[in-house]
Design a protein around this nucleic acid. Structure first.
Lengths: 252, 252
DNA sequence: TAAATAGTGTCTCTCAGACATTATCTT
DNA sequence: AAGATAATGTCTGAGAGACACTATTTA
């Protein structure tokens, strides 16, 4: 019954997202082989013989970032199977989205390819900015991330383990490209049950009154969702277009 | 760079959903080959050499239902790649969800397998009810359908081209397993811009005052979403567990 | 002190849910 | 007339957005 399609490969590609410098950024690698030699692409690789798709995605994430799973979120976005999407042959690709805080990467990953953070908006603005059909993959991943923030607590996965409400708000503003009223945002996120857990500590990272620190709470689904109608639209451009290699990492 | 994983096949499986007899139902086929000979499964098949995933899904839908695309909605749900999900070898599967009105099927499909509508709730209640990992595929597809009704106008794809608001409401009640206040539902769907287009005609399908007929409007995204908090929960059981073959179709 | 940021209070508007009321058909 | 269903009206409470105001830090 099953007839094997010849030369069929299945790959997993990752849209590893973070918020750096008030801006949604994605980890891209510079390709060291043909085709698309020298072009940017989402990191990824073939699924191994005894691997599940999720396992392959976690393995790729570890290889690229050197970071372990701790607190990260990973989620399948979709699959892509155009017969001509890879000139070398039939390669199906499953795209995963990973959300992580703006961490300094321990290593540059297993292979020698240069990995760098790049603003998502810049890549989405140019359909030719990424190899293969990765522009479409990134479009879908960014849209998924946008939607997930509305009705889940995944925004906090972009923050360090302890964070202020202002830091969380800046995540939402970066992902959505909007300006959010600080007062209303504060009231909203603190009123939703189990969304935030106060640590009792305070920080003076900013210039003004110290802010309370929170951890991500156990609530997964937000009800009602955070977003209704959005009013203020922020200039989507990032303040800093630095696509620095992840070795020379600087926290902001 | 690319090393082909041996014996890799990619299939597309379909969760073809409809609302029949006040109940969300899915088209299942009886397997005519091993493994899982005689068991029920979601219809599907291998992606052909020159096909995109979406094309393969549309082709399978046509083969199973004999119906053309007219007004139907199809959407990728997810991909499944457990190495042991198919005992014959490595088969990745991409699950698609299709939504259609309760139509009499022109033919029983290309092959001789018996295709029948079955209540989704029955299948979900028993993890062993479907072959392979299709119980999980159906779980994910049903959850996707549930969510999509909240913030899109896809509920209307379960209805015939012209429908009454009561018929649309019964779709929502069937998919969500809830009781919805007819008055509030009427006010909601008629107030959302471009959600429904009145035809100007009326029908007397019911016993009371004739209802106005509508078509599905051009609005794709509902804002705000229909569902907030749900109160009334309906008994999920279907009034009729008839899993009649699609040849002997009776409209309700 | 001024500037900056954190956090609270309050007003208004929209909308969901509950439910009464009216409208129009069949029997 | 009685019953059924369609459609509208009205009240209430929850919550979003706007924005004034207070609180607590640094320069």
């Amino acid at each position: 019954m099953i007839e094997i399609v010849p030369h069929t490969a299945v790959a997993v590609d990752l849209a590893i997202l973070t918020v750096r410098k008030q801006c949604l950024q994605v980890l891209v690698v510079e390709r060291g082989t043909r085709p698309y030699l020298g072009a940017c692409a989402l990191p990824g690789g073939l699924v191994e013989a005894d691997e599940d798709l999720d396992q392959a995605a976690w393995r790729e994430l570890l290889e690229e970032t050197g970071l372990d799973a701790a607190g990260l979120h990973i989620e399948q976005v979709g699959s892509y199977g155009d017969p001509r999407r890879d000139p070398r042959g039939r390669v199906f690709s499953v795209c995963y989205m990973a959300l992580m805080p703006d961490l300094p990467m321990p290593t540059a990953g297993g292979d020698a390819r240069a990995a760098r953070w790049t603003p998502v908006a810049d890549l989405l603005a140019d359909p030719e900015s990424l190899a293969f059909d990765h522009h479409r993959l990134l479009t879908d991943a960014a849209e998924r991330a946008h939607g997930k923030l509305e009705y889940t607590n995944l925004g906090a996965t972009f923050c360090p383990p302890e964070f202020t409400i202002a830091e969380l708000r800046q995540v939402y503003e970066a992902v959505w490209g909007t300006v959010i009223d600080p007062a209303n945002f504060h009231r909203k996120v603190t009123s939703v049950e189990d969304f935030l857990v106060p640590t009792g500590e305070k920080t003076q990272r900013g210039g003004g009154r110290p802010a309370a620190l929170y951890r991500r709470g156990p609530a997964l689904i937000l009800h009602p969702a955070i977003l209704r109608t959005h009013t203020g639209v922020m200039p989507l451009a990032c303040h800093d277009h630095d696509s620095s290699p992840i070795m020379s990492d600087t926290r902001n």
